[in-house]
Amino acid sequence: MNFDLSEDQVALRDAIRSLCRGRFTGERVRKGFDQAMFDELATTGVFSLRADGFGWADAAITFEELGRAVVPGPLVWTHLAHGVAEGIVTGLERPRDGAPALLEHLAVADGIAVVDDDGISLVPSDAVAGVTALDWPLDPLTPVHRIDALPTGERIGGRDEAAAWRRGGGLLTAAFEVGMAQACTEAATGYSLARRQFDRPIGSFQAVKHILADMVVRAEVARTAVHAAAVTMDDPGIGDRERALSGARLLAAEAAEKNAKGSLQVHGGIGFTWEADVHLYLKRAWMLSTAFGNVHVHADALAARLVR
């Protein structure tokens, strides 16, 4: 057993991190997702990673770094759809009882993957009718459309594939959330060292220091859970995959949300502004917490694994 990142994984992490530092700066990220961004990520292998022989653990490490930079876009769906559908793919769970669907990133997508208990369908994005764009989506980097009637589309996978996509999507979303939680800790720590009040850095005040300590622990514990879930997905013989995944998802969603709020608090007034990045993290955290099963879904799933 060696539950530390391998040398190759450290190299992978560093490569994605430096890609994000160089190419996906705050300014670029704030312009939102576009074809050029997709092309760059595709060239790096973000979407084809597992087809190229890497495992879920490597994919998780990659998405953690993308989360750190809050890179926008239907990254998880496009990764899942690699090899099954061409181009940029967005997706959602089929709304129950004909309820209207809210869908992210429709305008840039080539296809829409729709998952339900029986399988996965693909709907070409120009085949949907009755579409309205929300003029003010929660996360300014994630455009949202309301779709009144979602066509049935073409079946591209059955029950097993649907279950696998939900697992994989949950894992990569959790990894992304962990990256966001870490970025919030780092940003808030940096600010707490630079910002002075009462003639000293605010990070020396225990009331601030303890918020930051809780943030770093929350992110690290969630990160470990995500890595354990990823390793279990690569090697299901070592443990209960569903339990590991749901646990990771619970902790990661919580870490992303609470650390964004912690960062907002540490930033003071500036944390409440449009200009600061904090709200981008918090809003994305709220949105992602609904993807591939919200916290209640995963809490119920984990609890069910305990009484078998």
Binding site: F3, E220, V221, A222, T224, A225, H227, A228, R243, A244, S246, G247, A248, L250, L251, H296, H298, A299, D300, A301, L302, A303, L306
Partner: peptide
């Protein structure tokens, strides 16, 4: 309570992994 138990188990599982 079941959801709270799930959270606690998630944390303990993560600490074991840690």
């Amino acid at each position: 309570d079941r959801r709270e138990l799930a959270h606690v188990v998630a944390q303990l599982d993560a600490l074991w992994a840690l």
